[in-house]
């Protein structure tokens, strides 16, 4: 008998910090880099204390150039390091697209494995903080479209730590999007109500040591019979609240990793329930929901009793003052759930 691992109550920031700390402690090749991540510990404090503990050559501030940050990370990886760069907001990642898409993602392929890019790009994403169009976007669909990179999105402190450790240990480049709306508590979509802190959620009990959550493995957040809901990130909690308010017996699946996708879990669930709804905050057209919808149709067509339905942010830039009209919140979910059960 081994003792249960020691746990501590953590919010998502603390869990991410703990994952970085645990990995840096055992692997001297891990470096953390990005704008304001050093002395300041990051604008969201995810890297707080790491520079003091591991030194300036392993945790360092960078010039403000996202293409530079990722390009340098690719070079460091070519040397043999395992960089964990931070892009301060996902909305700032676009200057780095060439280095991510054309370089990091294809290095293994084009060199037949001679060079690889074991990089984990951490970046806060998503809205709900009045950040307007440059601090709110959910660009995961841009990255899932690219061959050769994995895309991971946690929804709890426990998952954030276990997934980040797996991402860092993975030998392929990983985009690790952190839903910043739930850094401090599981937001249920009711923006006019106070936020519950993580401490009251069971997934805030985070082991202090090393553990992994394998990439490519979804979690069934709530088992159910009526309809399968595929979602990830902040929307896991918004969906759970909407389902509870409706009293529906929905099966909620938190994908956790978008690429590679846990198709087996999705397929088993949809074949059981016969209905499938996809929920994400990102815009609809060519979003990851389109891919999920196509896959479910390909794998489960004869089991479907209703068309696959998508609930998403609108196909507009993220507005500032109309944020909650943009956001796929409780009312949009409730209407969509009614429709899919009537279809």
């Amino acid at each position: 008998m081994t003792d249960a691992p020691e746990t501590r109550t953590m919010n998502m920031i603390q869990a991410i910090n703990s994952a970085l700390d645990i990995k840096m402690g055992v692997d001297p090749d891990i470096v953390v880099m990005g704008e304001d991540v050093g002395f300041f510990g990051g604008v969201f404090k995810a890297t707080e204390g790491l520079q003091k503990k591991y030194g300036k050559t392993r945790v360092f501030d960078t010039p403000i150039t996202e293409c530079g940050i990722i390009g340098v990370a690719v070079g460091m990886a070519a040397y043999g390091l395992r960089p964990v760069p931070e892009i301060q907001f996902a909305d700032y990642i676009y200057p780095a697209l060439d280095q991510i898409v054309s370089e990091a993602a294809r290095l293994r392929y084009r060199s037949a494995g001679e060079f690889t890019a074991p990089i984990t790009v951490r970046s806060p994403f998503g809205g709900g903080i009045f950040g307007g169009q440059t601090h709110s976007q959910s660009p995961e669909g841009i990255f899932t479209h690219v061959s050769g990179i994995k895309t991971v999105i946690p929804s709890t402190p426990y998952d954030a730590k276990g997934l980040l450790i797996s991402a860092i240990e993975d030998n392929d480049p990983v985009i690790f999007f952190e839903p910043k709306r739930i850094y401090n508590g599981p937001f249920d979509g009711h923006h006019d109500r106070p936020v519950t802190p993580w401490a009251r959620h069971p997934a805030s009990a985070v082991p202090t040591g090393h553990y992994r959550i394998p990439l490519g493995q979804a979690a069934i957040v709530r088992p159910g019979e009526d309809v399968t809901i595929l979602t990830y990130g902040t929307m896991v909690h918004v969906v759970a609240a909407a389902v509870a308010e409706k009293g529906l017996d929905a099966e909620i699946i938190d994908l956790r990793t978008l690429v590679p996708l846990d198709m087996a879990t999705i397929e088993a669930s949809v074949k059981k329930t016969g209905r499938c709804m996809v929920v994400h905050e990102a815009t609809k057209t060519s979003g990851f929901g389109a891919e999920l919808s196509a896959l479910v149709q390909e794998h489960c067509f004869h089991h479907l009793e209703a068309p696959v339905r998508r609930v998403t942010g609108w196909d507009t830039p993220y507005p500032h003052s109309l944020e909650w009209a943009y956001y796929p919140g409780p009312v949009r979910l409730s209407l969509a759930l009614d429709k899919i059960m009537q279809d």
Partner: peptide, 16 residues
Amino acid sequence: YSNRGDRLKGRQMPIM
């Protein structure tokens, strides 16, 4: 203030 008088229709963060 992103208010009724905002010519940018409340779309942009303050000071943009």
